[in-house]
Amino acid sequence: MASLLKLVAQRIALGLLLLLAVSVLIFVGTQILPGDVAQSILGQSATPQALANLREQLGLNDPAYVRYFHWLWGMLHGDMGTALSNGQDIATSLSGRLKNTLFLAFWAAIVSVPLAIILGLIAVRHKNGFVDKLISGLTLASISLPEFFIGYLLIYFVAVQMQWFPSVSTVYDSMSFLERMKAIALPAATLTLVVLAHMMRMTRAAILNVMQSAYIETAELKGLTPFEIIRRHAFPNAIAPIVNVVMLNLAYLVVGVVVVEVIFVYPGMGQYLVDHVAKRDVPVVQACGLIFAAVYIGLNIIADITAIVSNPRLRHPK
């Protein structure tokens, strides 16, 4: 047991270290490359004096590493600085949008994960049959479709032609839960379609891999029914790979959110990030980038820890 805890702790420590390295990378990526923040705020016509003053004010005259630690310290304390474009506090603007994004991603996951696993099981059950071939054909198509193609198809047919749902997903605080759900129906459906096929195909591969093991044959030769074989012998071994598949796809979903939010004009983190990239608002971009990366790394850590915990070799060492 102690060695298991140690492995988990190691994995978490590694993840944190990676996150730290990522923060350096994001910081360096926005600082060393050409482009002067002061210049971009004040524009080309700014006087040298005004530029110097602003540089002083933003601490741009300090060496890069001092600015990095300053920034990191702030981020760790929830102080993300102020946006250059409108002078608002980033943390305040972000919190509501982060909530919206997580709300959307959560519901997309709630729909897509069970659906993908069930469809994956069906594909395994009818391996090489018509359903299986159909599923793998659809997968091929769906990994080739851009998110906005799916999104605008849904808007065109479901929102504009049939008028079932709004084409623009406006949400505000005073909305009821049901109204909110209605607003996110189409973006959530788009996200689901984006990850579904991939998740299904990977689930299918993971289960097939387990089903081809020699111990499944042993179980069959004991006279167990297909259901008993899946429940007792396949399932315990398939959990880890399936969780892994789910986590990888959730990480993918986090990225897909950026484009989907823009399609549906949904007030989330992705929309916020894209707007401020266009405005070259570096502090906002840094903050958003770090948050997205943290979520992504976090999901990968969960996947690895599940694999460690569900491995009997690690749970019961020799």
């Binding site: 020699a214 042993t218 030769l221 004991k222 006279g223 071994n237």
Partner: peptide
């Protein structure tokens, strides 16, 4: 199914692979 594991049983070449690692 009624005869497998009851009337006839099987011993595989690689027992290491034939046992379920989870049980």
């Amino acid at each position: 199914r009624a005869l497998r594991g009851r009337e006839v049983c099987y011993v595989a070449q690689s027992a290491a692979a034939a046992f379920n690692p989870a049980h």
